[in-house]
Amino acid sequence: MPATRPLHLAVDIGGPPHYEARHYTALAQLAERGTLDFVTLGDSFARPGLDALAVLARVAPATERIGLVPAVTTTHTEPFHVSSAVATLDWVSRGRAGWSLEVSTTEAEAALFGRRPAAPAADLWHEAREVADVAARLWDSWEDGAEIRDEPTGRFIDRDKLHYVDFVGSTFSVRGPAIVPRPPQGHPVTVIDATAPEPRAAAVRHADVALVRAGDPAAARALREELRDRARAHGRDPERLRVLVQLPVALHTTADAVALAGLIGDWYEQGAAEGFQLRPAEPERDLALLVDGTVPVLQHRGLMRRFYPGATLREHLGLSRAANQYAQAGSPS
């Protein structure tokens, strides 16, 4: 495990649904005080709760550094709208957006839309991969520097730097270009829970951050190796994939928080993971203890930074800005 890289910590701020902004803003601000990389917020059409991307858009101006990663489902939604919304979350947060891809497998969810029957997870994840692909194309469909504001020719944009994506997938097609200019990070960070085989196949192709579950450090290390090997087999640089271990936590006392720091530190030093996505049982209670009890211990051990050296989520994760697939070689991307 490269010790040069800091430990990455993310926290899920879901839990029982709340319907006003204050609850989520307070949790994200708390996580930011602990210099965590990002917060995640789950979303589903199948259970009560607000639209997660809307919640984190509301949180964005109330925070400055922390990454914001809502779950976004790809089954009954429009790929074009999804890509626009995630790009816009990146704009309003000035480069702190990600999205966690999920699918909707149930009959109940299909009935809410009445457009298509429920389908097996394998088909839906195949489609989710296509959505990840087309979203990246749409984000790239504006090259950086496309806006030129050239008064002598009267041109606002250089349209040679805008591209049709002409994507034809198995269940949808998109012409493009995007209506939103390329977001600050190039590509907002793609997160995929790689526990089940179908999303794992998506993660090795498209994820910047893959989430895994493991009972011990050896199992976690094996999973990480598998994901990196498979990413390499798809022509990707495995150094551009972060693997975080999901960890359910329930902290009742400072002693619990310190014990958690011990566990995180040990797993990390054994090379089991690059970091963790913590899933608190009760976010309000657990996050306070995490920030005031766990984080300081990890900082003291030199495993976690004490401040955010970067401004964007990609910078927190040590991932460079995404290259543009449409930019001509030699021209700036």
Partner: peptide, 24 residues
């Protein structure tokens, strides 16, 4: 047959912008 380039082009997605504006 080509993208109109003389006026402002491109804008963010409305509902997400408004969600953020609700904070300010």
């Amino acid at each position: 047959g080509r993208i109109h380039d003389l006026d402002v082009v491109g804008r963010p997605e409305s509902l997400t912008v408004l969600g953020a504006l609700a904070a300010v």
